[in-house]
Simulated assay, not measured.
Amino acid sequence: MKRAAAVLFAAMAAIGSASAQTAAPVIVEDFKPSSVNQPGQPYPQVNSQGYVRFRVTAPDAQAVKVSLGLGGRGGTVLTRAADGTWTGTTEGPLDEGFHYYHLTVDGGTFNDPGTLNFYGSTRWESGIEVPAHDADFYALKDVPHGRVEQVLFPSASTGTQRRAFVYTPPGYDQAQRARYPVLYLQHGWGEDETAWSNQGHANLIMDNLIAAGKATPFIIVMTYGMTNDVRPGSPGGLASFDIKPFQTVLVNELIPYVDTHFRTKADQGHRAMAGLSMGGFETKLIAPKNLDKFAYIGLLSGGTVSVDDVNGTPGYKEKVKLTFVSFGSRELEGRGMGGPPGAPRADPRATAAALKAAGINSVFYVSPNTGHEFLSWRRSLHEMAPLLFRN
């Protein structure tokens, strides 16, 4: 009897343990407004666990849903209250960092009036920031700040005036005789030239690195990487994107404009190109074919550079001073066909190691616990910037 009772007790304990494991998580009620909310707006809110709570006012609506991520993947259904507000909390915590989202109200797509808008998915999207444990490197601090300014440059090849944003480092306006290296930094698919300073905080990352003496001061140029109307839903999608027109804009029009209008070190050894996602794809297509222009190459969730790529590019070994490749860890978890956006088909760790073995200055970085998202790319820029333009 004692043995039978012991077995029964053990079985009940196991059942209780299993039930505990499948029980709904306890959500901590310490929600605070997101740091990218509109001034004075209390929602959306984020708690210490990374859960997000949304509330919108739509008294005449029949159904309200929140869709998160590029392309609106996932969703949180909101519940209507008697006062006409709709409230809901994500089923689980979100990864740290920045996330796009939008509202679906009775089948229509709308932005959340409670938060700021950011250009992504080829439209202005709502955004939310889940505080990161390492956010200090892109925080706004009491340090000397650089300046981000809009410039309009003529493009004869497209028959337009095109826009770029230019970051000049702290002290640029005062040091009238100083000249600076330049990084041409490209955005991702569906984004535009505002992305790296708005979503990416590239200027704050650089300000903090320079203030800490960890990076050489340099100029960053960010421009729109598309020259046609290709969209994700259009025939062929990104596969039909022709790089040649944008290469003409960048190499033949923008670089000469920047070298004329800013105090640059206008030579190959002081010029870099990098980009996230599609911007990395563009970098890989443009920079190796223009090694008289670029000495540093960075692909952030934008593919890899293999030994075959190097061997097939005359002058790569001699002229390229750094090949930087990075991914979010969740992208590597889904490596191969059917994985998340940005997932590489080949093993980028092995590719980077092969480059090192071949004598190439190759640096490979993985952002922990992030996917195809801006915290991966903020961290990647933070890792890459100190490696650029070193003596």
Rank of each mutant, 00 (worst) to 15 (best):
Val105Met: 13
Ala354Trp: 13
Val221Arg: 01
Arg271Asp: 03
Gln161Met: 07
Val7Ser: 10
Leu8Tyr: 13
Arg162Ala: 14
Gly75Asn: 13
Leu285Tyr: 11
Asp95Glu: 15
Ala5Met: 13
Gly107Leu: 08
Ser197Asp: 00
Val36Pro: 08
Gly108Met: 14
Ile360Tyr: 08
Gly233Phe: 04
Ser197Ile: 01
Asp242Leu: 13
Trp86Tyr: 03
Gln247Gly: 09
Lys214Cys: 00
Asp207Ser: 07
Gln174Cys: 02
Phe241Thr: 12
Asp134Trp: 11
Gly279Thr: 08
Ser34Asn: 10
Lys2Thr: 14
Phe374Asp: 01
Trp124His: 06
Tyr43Ser: 12
Met206Gly: 01
Gly200Ser: 14
Glu129Ser: 09
Met337Phe: 09
Ser380Lys: 07
Pro245Thr: 13
Arg271Val: 00
Glu96Cys: 06
Arg123Lys: 12
Thr264Leu: 00
Tyr119Ala: 12
Asp142His: 10
Val56Glu: 10
Ala10Ile: 10
Ile243Val: 14
Lys293Trp: 00
His187Cys: 11
Lys319Pro: 06
Met206Ala: 06
Arg177Leu: 04
Glu129Lys: 12
Ala175Trp: 04
Leu254Met: 11
Ala202Pro: 02
Thr227Cys: 05
Asp112Leu: 05
Leu355Lys: 10
Asp30His: 09
Met12Tyr: 05
Arg231Pro: 10
Gly88Gln: 14
Ser277Asn: 10
Thr323Asp: 09
His99Val: 06
Gly213Glu: 03
Val36Cys: 08
Leu116Asp: 07
Gly336Leu: 07
Val143Gly: 00
Met222Gly: 04
Gly50Val: 03
Asn37Tyr: 06
Asn252Ala: 15
Pro113Trp: 12
Leu254Gln: 02
Ile297Pro: 03
Ala272Gly: 02
Gly84Val: 14
Arg80Gly: 00
Val182Lys: 04
Gln174Tyr: 13
Gly338Ile: 14
Met222Cys: 08
Gln199Lys: 05
Asn198Ser: 13
Phe324Thr: 11
Arg55Met: 15
Lys141Trp: 06
Gly371Ile: 03
Asp173Pro: 05
Pro235Val: 05
Glu373Phe: 13
Gln38Gly: 06
Val325Cys: 04
Gly16Thr: 05
Ile27Trp: 02
Leu94Trp: 08
Ala354Cys: 04
Ala178Glu: 15
His270Val: 01
Pro368His: 11
Asn198Cys: 06
Ile219Pro: 00
Gly336Ala: 08
Ser19Leu: 09
Tyr257Pro: 01
Gly312Arg: 08
Val325Gln: 07
Ala139Leu: 06
Lys65Phe: 02
Ile128Arg: 09
Ser19Cys: 12
Tyr138Glu: 08
Phe54Val: 13
Ile297Gln: 06
Gly74Pro: 01
Phe110Pro: 01
Ala18Trp: 07
Thr216Trp: 00
Ala81Met: 12
Thr87Gln: 05
Gly50Arg: 04
Pro131Gln: 14
Leu185Asp: 00
Leu70Cys: 11
Thr104His: 01
Trp86Arg: 11
Gly40Arg: 10
Phe389Asn: 01
